[in-house]
Design a binder for these strands. Sequence first.
DNA 1: ATAAAAACATACTAATTAGTATGTTTTTTG
DNA 2: CAAAAAACATACTAATTAGTATGTTTTTAT
Lengths: 196, 196
Amino acid sequence: MSKAAATRLNILHKAFELIYAKGYQTTSIDEIIATTKVTKGAFFYHFKSKDEMGLAIINEILKPTMEESFIKPLENATEPIGVIYQMMYDLLFNNEFLKLEYGCPAGNLTQEMTPWNVEFSEVLSSLTRKWHSTLEKLIEIGKKNGNIRPNVNAAQVAYFVMSGYWGIRNFGKVYKSKDCYFAYLEELKVYLDGLK
Amino acid sequence: MSKAAATRLNILHKAFELIYAKGYQTTSIDEIIATTKVTKGAFFYHFKSKDEMGLAIINEILKPTMEESFIKPLENATEPIGVIYQMMYDLLFNNEFLKLEYGCPAGNLTQEMTPWNVEFSEVLSSLTRKWHSTLEKLIEIGKKNGNIRPNVNAAQVAYFVMSGYWGIRNFGKVYKSKDCYFAYLEELKVYLDGLK
DNA sequence: ATAAAAACATACTAATTAGTATGTTTTTTG
DNA sequence: CAAAAAACATACTAATTAGTATGTTTTTAT
């Protein structure tokens, strides 16, 4: 990787962490260049504006990591219940990047940006839709191979499961304890077993 | 009500709407006084700082309205399943203040403020805990009167149900359609019926 | 090696921010 | 009614913001 490309990637990574912790609008460019030790000239050489950087973060950092954590574990799976539970467990307890007090990066950005920024809204929407369709397909597979009851509505289940995840991440933030994660996961298990 | 008290309340209400739509940190005092047609002198006569106003909004506006929508419908109820479903339905479809694209005011504030503002965090946490304990108590009543299976874990169910609500509010924001509300509610019904 | 382009650095700007200093006008109280 | 306090108004300030103008240095291509 060229030095310039490394500078750019470094900005994206550090800015992503700052935005994850503090929010997009309250993370200033001055703060980003201070932590990356890059000058303002370099920053605006790589990105025309703050929003261009923000979209690059979503497309080049958030999207690939979400594919890894939210999509990949569900692909090529045949037994939805165990796989979905395990994915949630891993996200809540085994992910070394995600922090209890900062919640879910995609959820945070969605809440902050979608009401007024069309570009952010569109790219976040497509991320979310991809997760939903992956989940839905997996449930359908489960229905076909008998792991899931045939009268289960796959699209509904997908929404229900995803909502729970975004919600419990917000509870973790306010309670500042993973206890609610445990409770959520236990009840998720009860719910998923009901789909058999 | 005195004229001064009316001015103060007007600031709180207008500021609450702005913050609901745009977020706390990105709603400026200048914007608040412009929409309330109150001068800066009046604003800082009533509130020592922006944060003091923010906390007043939570305590004097958000808290009472949440008690009305999230607590009262559950109190003195005996049949949890129908009551919880109806509350969610009313929140998602019959509430004239809440807007699809702006999500849940308490959820928004929680996500934005709890990582770094202790005071906001504490008051939002107590709001959330109150909702949780009300839900938990209702489930316990249902267990005693036979509407809910005895082996159901009430605290877990409360977390699970609350998470789903915060989550689906966020989905509504990004999808900009109430379709996901319908799907969520249908699956909530399936889940709740499983607690019988 | 050298010219050209890419990458980065420094110093600025105009707008916006929360908050203050210092008033004037209302309202209340004796 | 008159003094005092409460309520509100105006004009400022210092800090921070995204972004620009104008450089210098480093890399690349010939």
